[in-house]
Amino acid sequence: MSPDTKPVLSVRKLVKRFGGFVALDGLSFHAAPGEVLGLVGPNGSGKTTAINVISGLYAPDGGEVVFDDVSIGGTASHKLVHRGINRTFQVPKPFMSLTVRENVRVALAYGHVGGTPPGLDALLDEYRLAAVADRPAADLNSAQQKMLDLVRALATRPRLLLLDELAAGLNPAELDWIAERIKQLAASGMSIIVVEHLMGFIEHITDRVIVLNAGKEIFEGKLAAAVKEPQVIEVFLGGEHAA
């Protein structure tokens, strides 16, 4: 990211509690257009919660989420979609009884505001769903459902795309292929935030990572630098490895 690029998303001192459990405890970071940002951290560190708050599934209990200079914390998801935010789900939930084509048609009809919507067939073709376009989503395998979830998100022309463990469960060939696609999307100016456990994949596609622990960022920068940071090593591997 060049230093003068204005961030499209700024998360400032974000707090989210579930009862007594503090899932996000003052998390701050930003994402720039054209950038692939990785969110990494141990299980329960708040990665998915952060994505859920940014995409409007949860309202924050403190702090703010600023998108295009507008504070959007607590705004309903469908309105955020219209503003240009979309996401995929760790466990995709397509509209099972609708066909693949119908799944995407819903997002095309309701998800974008102005501009030319992306072509349905081109999208399906690009994400290897053309052959199953007229089958119910329930017939797809899990990798195909993940791609359908991604196509559903892309159909709304997001400028900020949040990918929650998109790579989990894909085979190595599919991983290389989807990594290229993600890089191309970013090259088109889209800001992409990736939550992922596969460090090789993260290293391959991200420009920068934020390491989370207990709902707070403990490191920001290149993944290669992160793994030399004693605090990061402590969180991932335990205290005795840090020294």
């Binding site: 998801s77 789900f89 939930k93 509209f95 819903v106 997002a107 559903r152």
Partner: peptide
Amino acid sequence: LALQAVREDAVSASMSGV
């Protein structure tokens, strides 16, 4: 179609802009 999408999964429907 959007109504059926809501029936199938309300969260995915709202992330489709519905």
